[in-house]
């Protein structure tokens, strides 16, 4: 009994934490679009001032091609 008295509340905490994490993930829109992020991960350079990347196009290096 004594071990269950500790294990069960701990397990309940885990369940509650898992549910809370899931609800948070859904509410912050992480399940909204399951396709595009999978494509985006292949892109090596990120764009946008928010991410602190310079505005200078990094693709310039291949500009002389063709």
């Amino acid at each position: 009994m004594s071990i269950l008295g500790i294990a069960v509340p701990v397990a309940l905490l885990f369940v509650a934490a898992a549910i809370a994490a899931f609800v948070w993930a859904v509410r912050t829109g992480q399940m909204d679009d399951l396709e595009t992020p999978a494509m985006r991960v292949l892109h090596d350079d990120e764009v946008g001032s928010e991410r602190g990347v310079s505005r200078r196009p990094s693709g310039r290096r291949s500009a002389d091609r063709g």
């Binding site: 595009t36 494509m39 892109h43 764009v47 946008g48 196009p57 693709g59």
Partner: peptide
């Protein structure tokens, strides 16, 4: 139609001065 479109469209801030961010939903 494909992953390259996502890449190209999301590079819009490099093409147009003043665009902060572009996010494309490919579906």
């Amino acid at each position: 139609h494909c992953a390259a479109c996502v890449w190209l469209v999301e590079r819009l801030p490099l093409v147009v001065e003043g665009v902060i961010e572009a996010r494309l939903d490919a579906r």
